[in-house]
Design a protein around this nucleic acid. Sequence first.
RNA 1: GGGCGAAUAGCUCAGCUGGUUCAGAGCGCCUGCCUUACACGCAGGAUGUCGGGGGUUCGAAUCCCUCUUCGCCCACCA
Length: 897
Amino acid sequence: MTEPLAPQYNPSVIESALYAWWQERGVFSPDGAAARGSAGEPYVVMMPPPNVTAALHMGHGLNNTVQDVLIRFERMRGRRALWLPGTDHAGIATQNVVERLLAKEGLTRFDLGREAFVERVWAHVHDTGAAILDQLKAIGCSADWSRTYFTLDEGLSRAVREMFVSLYEEGLVCRGHYIINWCPRCLTALSNEEAEKAEVDGKLWHLRYPLADGTGYLTVATTRPETMVGDSGVAVHPDDERYRHLIGRELRLPVVDRLIPIVADAAVDPAFGSGAVKVTPAHDPADFEIGRRHHLPAIDVLTPEARISLAAPERFQGLDRYEARRRVVAEFEAAGLLERVEDHRHAVGHCYRCDTVVEPRLSDQWFVRMEPLARPALEAYRNGTLRFIPERRGDDYVQWLEGIRDWCISRQLWWGHRIPVWYCQREGCERTSVSRTDLEVCPACLGPVRQDPDVLDTWFSSWLVPFSGLGWPERTTDLATYYPGHTLVSAADILFFWVARMVMSGLHVMSEVPYTHIYLHGTVRDTQHRKMSKSLGNGIDPLEVVERYGADALRYSLVSGMSVGTDVILDPDDLEASFAPGRNFANKLWNAGRFILSNLDGPVRPLAGSGPTVVRRDELTLADRWIIARCDAAVRETTDALERFRLNEAAAAAYRFLWSDLADWYIEQIKPRLYGDLPGGDVARAVATQTFDVALRLLHPVMPFITETLWRRFPGRPAEASISLSPWPRPDARAEDPEALAEFGLVQEVVGAIRGIRAEYGVQPGQAVRAVVGRNGGAAHAGLSRERATILRLAKVSELAFGESTERVGGNAVLSDGTSVFVPLGDAIDVGRECGRLGSEVERLSKLLRAQEGKLGNPQFVTRAPTDVVEKERQKLAAWKEQCEVLVRKRELLGCS
RNA sequence: GGGCGAAUAGCUCAGCUGGUUCAGAGCGCCUGCCUUACACGCAGGAUGUCGGGGGUUCGAAUCCCUCUUCGCCCACCA
């Protein structure tokens, strides 16, 4: 712990060992906090459980960095912070992964059979070993890994079954025969949310259906001509004058040569297409409803793979849906029944896991009746219990809940929670039993039973995690302590899949919302604003960034580039551009710490408290008071920003304090004191050490590794002490010091002005200059003489005088409060150039003056604007006037023409 | 089709309740510096009709309207 620090921060040698140390120390566990006697209120964040087979991508990086910042912040504030991690069995996704592996061996899951396949998936999941959790550790996530759950483990499986059965008993889970979204590739039903609508360029075919009596035809318009082999009617609007006379008559369906009726239904929009709709009850939700109202048969003409079924004419059977589409159109055309074809852009559902176009399909599935669950969830938002950050996201939530439809939860997969329903096989009984325990026989007749072959939607297990992850349905201590939670951090893409549903289940089961704040962050995109994805190859591997720049640089870059609700843009082709700022900042922090540490020569005097060594207020220089006041401001700004979920502002406030205030000014200012050239070294060491300590703590949530490493190096730290458990800095009213801020601010301005003049006239860096500061300033002037040494040193000034300069030739500047600064340059200066410079400056000021005089000459402004604003503007005018006069005088002195 | 958001320096973005953080930061660019914490650094500098137009106001990057351009969410007009 005492070996010298390298001049460059090297994250790789520090991070993994430090992480292991945190874990050993149990700093991530809220139980540890309780054991240490920290009886703070719990603060709970539910981690969106990554898929077991997933690899970490930038989306995870962003999402988990945000959560870690919040949890570390609250942990330091003394809350019993629990970040509950887990993994999701991810039904379709994981099954797809293993099926692809099997395909490489030339096998399908059907070759293995259900039991062997499920074993194979378990083996795969075991092999991948939830590697993503280790990857989250690599970026510093401080989740309580001792509580990690898996949505398919025993406890959560019991929770899933309890939920299913009790909802069934309440009549909220039921089996139904409806049109659902079917993925012909995954061979399963999907929920509405899992069928992602995407606009596609399609066609609208206008097909003629001849009247049965041969007296003409009726034209229908369709985007899916192949489904016509399943038509069982044609519908028109009851008030449509064009077709009224046809209602009740029959059409001869071409291709299949079947008679179908023309019915009247108000659902038809007379303005669209031809105003007549072919009705295919088995393959369209609207048609299904129309068919039901008019008792039209539902003819299923598609197989699970979306090929034409045996219900269609033989020549179509077995054809792929798109091939069938071409053949149907061709037959209409050949028969002269194809009226026309229009281009038609419309929204089509796509499987969210494999992007295959989904097929609406009639089948028996299990559903959750959502409306009764949605009502309390809406109420929780409307009465302010549940809040969104950013606020406008609440609109999406409301819109979805208001239009909520029943949730299809059965999946024709093998990987997942088996549906706890058994069907009696005995003829005459055939009872359906929904049970918390596995059944061997029918409870009614003791006959043989068969369990429903389907599994549940993955989201049916993950919507329970705020309580199932804490032990529900058992009444555990964890459940009592950590439910309800507080903040849920998510990207918007799983708002409906997961976030909103957890609110519903939480209110229903636990009678309380699972969290009060929903923070929705943006998406990680590339410079063309495309979402980063494996298929586009525009992703950035967070682990590569960790390797090259360190976890802290990754985290800082993500957080600083992220404003509430907006996307984070990163350049996959130039990691340097995206992550170097974070790396540079870490290095700056490292070196500031290295500098302060290397200048400590013993115990550091305390700044507060009691005792003989406490630094007295009268020992503080202006610079000391200034950095203490700036430090206090940084505490306020950072804390306030974190409380408002403005992580980027928090990072910026701490960054500014560390780099612009502490490193650029304060550390530079105290060097002569530290080196013994000026007295007060012990005070400087005390102030530097203690303000730097605050900076470390303010930065710790964002940059945990480097701050911990440096923090532990400071003298007086017990071996087991961790910054993670040190208290979050508190604002201190005694540190506020507007006088010091103003006075040192003027010192900074003087230094800046002299440096500017030096640079402008090309004064050699090693060459000292003299400077004369006018006495025309205000109250802040007192600081200039008190920090004379600072000005001499930082502006490389050999002699600083106050008053009017008697010399003519040199560089001039005017400070914000009207103070003039003159740097005599003798022969070194080009008088003509200075004349020109002063001339253009006078011109600029004159323009400002004219505008300002106009403003103040406007009676409307003077009478209507608040008096303090008018007064400010008057002062501004006075200051500019004075500056202008100074410059004009200079011009005269120089003899400018 | 309905709803929402964004447009500010070459790039990525701050700018919150109209008025000294008001035109900013980081990166990039230019000039000069290996000043004993840091060249992943220091000092200085250039770059903007705050998307166009209109309005409200004493005063607009900020509020309103409108247009343009890009996003996002929702949607059973087949």
